[in-house]
Structures are given as C-alpha cells and as structure tokens.
C-alpha cells in the first residue's frame, strides 16, 4: 500500500491519538515544571471605636488576574519532583542519616505519600497478576472437563465480575464485607470476634483489595485459557497417554507448555491494567490505608480549593516512566520478532 493511501486511511485515528494521548503527555511534562501561584495577600485595616484591627486576606481579584495571565502557575523547574510529596530526596537523605536500623528506614519511607502509593501499586501488580493466571488456569482446566451443557451457563456467570465496572464491582463487595453485610458478619461469626472489621486495619484492607483484584480479573485469564484448551492437539495428548502419562502429568507436560504463550499474553495485559489500579480504592473507600499512583493523581486534581496541576503532572510523568519500564521487556521482544520476520 503506498504511503499516501496509508495516510488517507489512518489519519483520523492518528490525529485522535496525537491530540488526546501524545499531546496530553507533553502537556503533563510542561505542567509538571510549574507550581501554583503564591497567594497574594493584602492587609486591610478596619478601625472601630476600640482601635484598629489589621486583617490579612487573599486578594481574590489579583489572584484571578494572575491565573489568567499564567494559567499553569509559576515556573518551578524540577523542584516539584524532588519535594516531599514526590521523590522526597531531602527527606530520604535525612531518614538514612538519622535512622538506626533497616526497619525504621522502611517505616519512615513508607510514610512518604509517593513511596506509600508506589509500594501498594507494585505490590498489587505483582501479587494479583500471578494469582489471576493461576486461578484462571485452574478454572479453565476444570470447566473444560465438565459436561458440555453446563459450560455455557458457567461461562456466562464467570464473565460478570470482569465486565462489570471496577467501581460498581468493588461497591458490591464493599457492601457485603461491611460489618452489617453478609460476608462481614459471616467472618465475625467465623472468627468469633464481633469487632472484626475488614475496613479497620491496613493489612486487611490490602488483602481485601488483592482479593477483589483476583476476583475481577480471573475470568479474563479463565476465558483465554479455556479458548486455548480447545485447540490443544489431541494427537499429542493421546501419545502422552500411550506413553503412560497420568492425568496430572498430561496437564504438567503437555497442556501447560502449550498454553505458555497465552500466559505471557495474560501477564502483559494484567500488568498494564493492574498498574493503574484506582477505582477499587474509591469503591472500597480504602484511601486511608492504601493509595496507588493513579489515586494520588486523582486526589491532587480533586484538591478542594483548586486542582494541584503541577503536583498531579509530576506524579503522572513518574507513573508513565513506570509504565514504560514495565513494558520494556515486551517491546524488546516484539522488536526482535519483527526483525526476524522481515
């Protein structure tokens, strides 16, 4: 296809991506170098019968004008990146200088908002992803072995947790784990502890979020593996049986290696999706004990008086950097494959 025809076909889609994905990334980079204007204060003196009071207040008019002239704020360079709510170099240096042992260093770093969110995001990504693959595989193998007329309904109900919006899905679970909800009350009865609440402790909140993540994504892995199982060559299975392989050995040495490429695919999709974990934190109202990078950005943009564009942009750029690091092995592999083909 000549270049000109190619462009004729692809330009609308390309334009949309450049305008609303590439440019915003540049815009984020630009905004991250700026910070909110300092407040312009004016002193006004009100004199009454009992002497004069001076009042300091924000000059709203001057602020509005300043915002109009420089909407992005004042130039701040990379200072936003290094301040306490992002990479916090100064604080980390101080922590290393003044802390006595490793545990203390870890605890103090975990109190810095950026590192707290990063830890949760990475923990969520790297705990949920393998569990999703494992559970999805088990469900697929088991469902594949049940009678045919049951498979349709099973797949129907299995798809629900995945297709329902994360916010809605997490709300449904959140109401059930409430201490007055069925799961919450059930757990209290199970452990004989009427004060048990999944919302109270950070550890339990983390576990709840992980469980939610696995519940939400396992159907995806299940469906992909299930479709893969339909294409496993019967000859190979039969020759394994002739060679005396037991049921377990057939799964271990024939089916698992055959489905490996699918596992890579699921892992890639899950890494991308889990890294941006965000809605469950809102659905479970878990922000007090678990925040993710995406949540930090959302929170900055939702700041009560005026959005903290600079701070949100800096976190965004660091997140994008994280995504690229995460995808680097995949991109390299694709590049090698592409070169081999051409």
């Amino acid at each position: 296809m000549p270049h000109k025809t190619f462009m004729a076909f692809i330009w609308p889609s390309l334009l949309a991506m450049v305008l609303f994905i590439a440019l915003p990334i540049i815009s984020v980079g630009y905004q991250s170098l700026y910070i909110e204007h300092e407040q312009i204060l004016i002193e006004s003196e009100t004199c009454g019968p009992f002497g004069c009071d001076t009042e300091v207040s924000v000059d709203a008019q001057a602020m509005a004008q300043l915002r109009e002239e420089q909407p992005a704020g004042r130039f701040n360079g990379v200072a936003t990146y290094t301040n306490v709510s992002h990479l916090a170099f100064d604080e980390i240096g101080e922590i290393f200088a003044t802390s006595e042992n490793f545990g203390e260093i870890r605890n103090r770093i975990m109190n810095l908002p950026f590192y707290k969110a990063l830890t949760f995001t990475l923990a969520y990504t790297f705990i949920v992803t393998p569990l999703v693959i494992l559970l999805g595989f088990i469900i697929a193998v088991v469902v594949n072995s049940i009678p045919k007329f049951l498979k349709g309904p099973v797949i129907f109900f299995s798809l629900l947790p995945m297709l329902v919006t994360p916010l809605v899905g997490s709300l449904v679970l959140y109401w059930m784990i409430d201490s007055r909800g069925i799961i919450g009350a059930g757990l209290q009865a199970l452990f004989g502890d009427p004060s048990l609440s999944l919302k109270a402790s950070p550890v339990l909140t983390w576990i709840t979020l992980f469980v939610y993540g696995v519940w939400h994504s396992a159907p995806f892995a299940f469906v992909v593996f299930y479709a893969g199982l339909q294409t496993v060559p019967q000859d190979t299975i039969e020759s394994a049986m002739v060679d005396g392989a037991s049921r377990w050995e057939r799964v271990r040495f024939v089916i698992v290696p055959y489905l490996m490429p699918l596992a890579t695919f699921i892992a890639l999709m899950q890494l991308m999706d889990n890294f941006r974990v965000f809605e469950p934190i809102i659905g479970f109202s878990a922000a007090a004990s678990a925040t993710s990078l995406s949540y930090l950005i959302y929170n900055d943009l939702r700041a009560s008086e005026s959005p903290l564009f600079g701070s949100a942009a800096a976190t965004s750029l660091l997140t994008i950097l994280g995504v690229i690091i995460l995808l680097l092995p995949v991109l390299r592999r694709n590049w090698r494959e592409f070169n081999r083909k051409t």
Binding site: P24, V28, F278, L293, T319
Partner: peptide
Amino acid sequence: PHVTLVSG
C-alpha cells in the same frame, strides 16, 4: 493510566 492523560 487514564488518569495521567486526564491530568494533561
């Protein structure tokens, strides 16, 4: 992550 784009 969509929220990074939104902040842009």
